[in-house]
Design a protein around this nucleic acid. Structure first.
Length: 495
RNA sequence: GCUCUGGUAGUAUAGUCCGGUCAAGUAUACUGGCCUCUCGAGCCGCAAGGCGGAGACAGUCAGUGACACGGGUUCGAAUCCCGUCCAGAGCACCA
């Protein structure tokens, strides 16, 4: 039968149950990127895991842009929409969206309340002076001032009477806490830089722990999934929650994700783009979603990969081998196969006894997709071969032209017909090489994962497909082809 | 240096909370068998078809390969305890 064999259903990886899930009527998760650049494989983890859990529990998903630092890691105006598009492409569904730079009044309101509760104070100490005190578990003089004085200082921060760097709001914690990084952490500071969305409307901005902590409570987040670099932030925020009398959400901190030989650092990516090392965010050497998409990885591959890594707190170093294997399995049955000759060289065959036609199937498992026919005859004996294969072939050695006949090399660029039987090729230990009649191929450059490119010739029928499209080029690998201006360009996905 | 986490095959992950069913499961990688498909000398057959040779992707079956080290508790430890080593995260008026 032509019907595909009954494949065993891909066993869906089951994520471990969320802690204390039954405590909540509805599970609510969030993904909170900083729109200072696009998202990459590492960032995707929080998004995909949260999405998966939301679906698993019939819960709700909040997308929250955390853009409260106008001067350090400044938000990029275009990043918001690119992130939305990347998430959509990944199949992440969100029910609510929020942008923190729209919520400053909410943070101001909670800052004032926290001061009134005696849970926070305005500190005018120099950063170094404060650090010196706090490492000795000593309070700074500002800490003991009464709330009325604190509110007065807060007002001066907002009105501009205190200059940038002159004061900061701190949340009171246990000064005896063994980890000095947790003691009386900063929650609000003055930042007068212009914000790409709202300009200079505000001069006082919340720090991460304040904005994120307030929002998680206000939005009713039940479970937070984030990297373990946020582990101490949880401990910091818990002090604030205690002041307000709130319960802290369940938090899961997973380890960092690395991928061998690929840059997954936003700051390095940005620096590389600015210096011209990388062309843009979708440079094939990068681990951004944009780059993976351009190279021809499918969203399902990314999701399976992230799910496979789960939520372990230890660092994981993924190898491309595994990523490629997942993607190959998905792509192989779906994409057409064509002949592509990388770095072609001409080769003339003598002694061809008659006209031959080689049939090359578009997919061996789908004969109904059809086949391509290539002709070689005594009258047109010149073909194109990949130079990489040609270089291996010395005078006197034999090889087989895929689906055609066997050839012996007589001298560089020339050979002669030997036989038609594939068994001969085997007996001679001859490689089977893909080829194309000279003059048939259309030029197609394929950008490799290291950003170098192969110049080559592709079966023009491939370029007649709807673009962009993924193919498997015989003996070359999977390539995603795009229309670019008047021509086409390919990106190598994997072998 | 200080504060936290962790260490299961080359890589990733399950098992660790509640010790035995874990001489450790899964995926990937590698090796071998089978097989679809493709190309196909020859053989059998009136024919349909069958046998047979070769090889790539996928499929399938089998094999290779790991509980960081040392001690302790226990009838029994990957799982509990202690120590050592190693790795990661944090120690910003970043997120």
């Amino acid at each position: 039968m032509g019907a595909p064999k009954e494949k065993p259903k891909q066993v869906e990886r089951i994520l471990p149950a969320l802690p204390n899930a039954s405590k909540f009527k509805v599970i609510k998760v969030r993904f909170a990127p900083n729109p200072d650049s696009v998202i990459h494989l590492g960032n995707t983890r929080a998004a995909l895991l949260s999405d998966e859990y939301a679906k698993m529990y019939g819960g709700s998903f909040v997308l929250r842009f955390e853009d409260t630092s106008p001067s350090i890691k400044p938000p990029q105006a275009e990043a918001y929409e690119i992130i939305r598009q990347d998430l959509k492409w990944l199949g992440v569904h969100w029910d609510e969206e929020a942008i923190q730079s729209d919520r400053l009044p909410i943070y101001y309101d909670h800052a004032r309340r926290l001061i009134e509760l005696g849970g926070a104070y305005i500190c005018t100490c120099k950063a170094e002076a404060f650090r010196a005190l706090v490492t000795q578990k000593k309070p700074c003089p500002c800490r003991e001032l009464p709330p009325s004085e604190q509110l007065e200082r807060w007002g001066r921060m907002l009105s501009g009477k205190i200059r940038r760097g002159g004061a900061v709001m701190r949340v009171k914690t246990d000064l005896e806490h063994p980890n000095p990084a947790i003691r009386d952490w900063p929650a609000m500071r003055i930042d007068t830089a212009s914000h790409p969305r709202i300009g200079k409307k505000y001069r006082v901005w919340p720090l991460y722990n304040f904005a994120s902590g307030i929002d998680d409570h206000l939005m009713g987040i039940t479970h937070i999934l984030r990297g373990k670099e946020h582990e101490v932030n949880m401990h910091r925020q818990k002090y604030m929650y205690r002041h307000f009398g709130w319960d802290y959400p369940e938090a899961i901190h997973y380890g960092r994700l690395k991928i061998v030989g690929t840059v997954l650092s936003k700051s390095k990516i940005r620096a590389g783009i600015e210096s011209g090392l990388y062309t843009d965010w979708s440079d094939p050497r990068l681990g951004t979603i944009a780059a993976l998409r351009r190279r021809g990885f499918v969203p399902e591959t990314i999701r399976r990969l992230i799910l496979e890594c789960g939520v372990r707190p230890s660092e994981a170093t993924i190898s491309w081998e595994n990523v490629d294997a997942i993607n190959r399995k998905i792509l192989d049955p779906l994409v057409k196969r064509y002949v592509y000759i990388a770095d072609p060289v001409a080769f003339e065959i003598g002694g061809i006894p008659k006209a031959f036609t080689a049939k090359v199937a578009l997919h061996p498992d789908h004969p109904e997709w059809g086949a391509r026919e290539f002709a070689v005859s005594p009258e047109s004996p010149i073909i194109s071969l990949p130079s990489g294969d040609m270089a291996q072939l010395k005078k006197g050695s034999a090889f087989r032209l895929m689906n055609l006949f066997n050839v012996e090399v007589t001298r560089a660029g020339r050979g002669r017909f030997v036989s038609e039987d594939v068994a001969d090729a085997k007996r001679l230990g001859a490689h089977i090489i893909q080829w194309m009649p000279q003059g048939l191929g259309a030029p197609l450059n394929v950008v490799r994962p290291d950003a170098t490119a192969h110049q080559g010739l592709v079966d023009p029928a491939a370029l007649g497909e709807a673009m962009p499209s993924s193919f498997q080029f015989y003996r070359y690998g999977f390539v995603r082809v795009y229309r670019e201006g008047e021509g086409f360009v390919g990106y190598f996905t994997h072998g």
